[in-house]
Amino acid sequence: MTEELLRLSKRMSELGLSSRREADEWIARGWVRVDGKVVSELGTKVYPSQHITVERQAAAEQSKRVTVLINKPVGYVSGQAEDGYTPAVALIKAENRWAEDRSPEQFHPTQLRSLVAAGRLDIDSVGLLVLTQDGRVAKQLIGHDTEVDKEYLVRVQYTKGDKLPDSELKRLNHGLWLDGKPLLPAKVRWQNDDQLSFTLREGKKRQIRRMCELVGLKVLGLKRVRIGKVKLGDLPTGQWRYLSADEQF
Rank of each mutant, 00 (worst) to 15 (best):
L121G: 12
Q57R: 14
V68Q: 00
G36R: 14
K160M: 10
R102V: 11
V126C: 07
D83A: 11
V68K: 00
A88I: 02
F107P: 03
E41Y: 02
Q239A: 00
N173I: 08
P185I: 03
D145R: 10
K181S: 07
G43F: 03
S244M: 04
Q111G: 03
D83Y: 07
R7H: 13
R7Q: 10
R189L: 05
Q62G: 09
L121P: 13
V116L: 13
I92N: 04
K160D: 02
L8T: 09
Q195I: 09
D134I: 09
D101M: 06
K163Y: 10
Y85K: 03
L217I: 05
D179Q: 13
E213Q: 07
L164R: 01
T86H: 00
S40A: 15
Y85I: 02
L91C: 00
D162P: 05
G175W: 10
E213Y: 01
S63Q: 10
K218W: 11
S9N: 08
H174Q: 10
R136H: 12
Y47A: 08
V154H: 15
M211V: 02
D162I: 05
I142Y: 09
K204Q: 08
G16M: 08
K205H: 11
Q133G: 01
Q207L: 04
V32N: 08
R20P: 11
L172D: 04
K205F: 15
A117K: 01
T86N: 00
Q248E: 08
R33D: 03
Q62P: 09
D145P: 02
V225E: 09
D83I: 00
E213F: 01
M211D: 14
S40R: 12
R171V: 06
V54Q: 05
A186F: 15
M1E: 14
E168C: 15
V39D: 03
E213T: 01
V66M: 01
T86W: 00
R20A: 07
S63E: 09
K150A: 03
S49M: 10
Q239S: 01
S13C: 12
Q133Y: 01
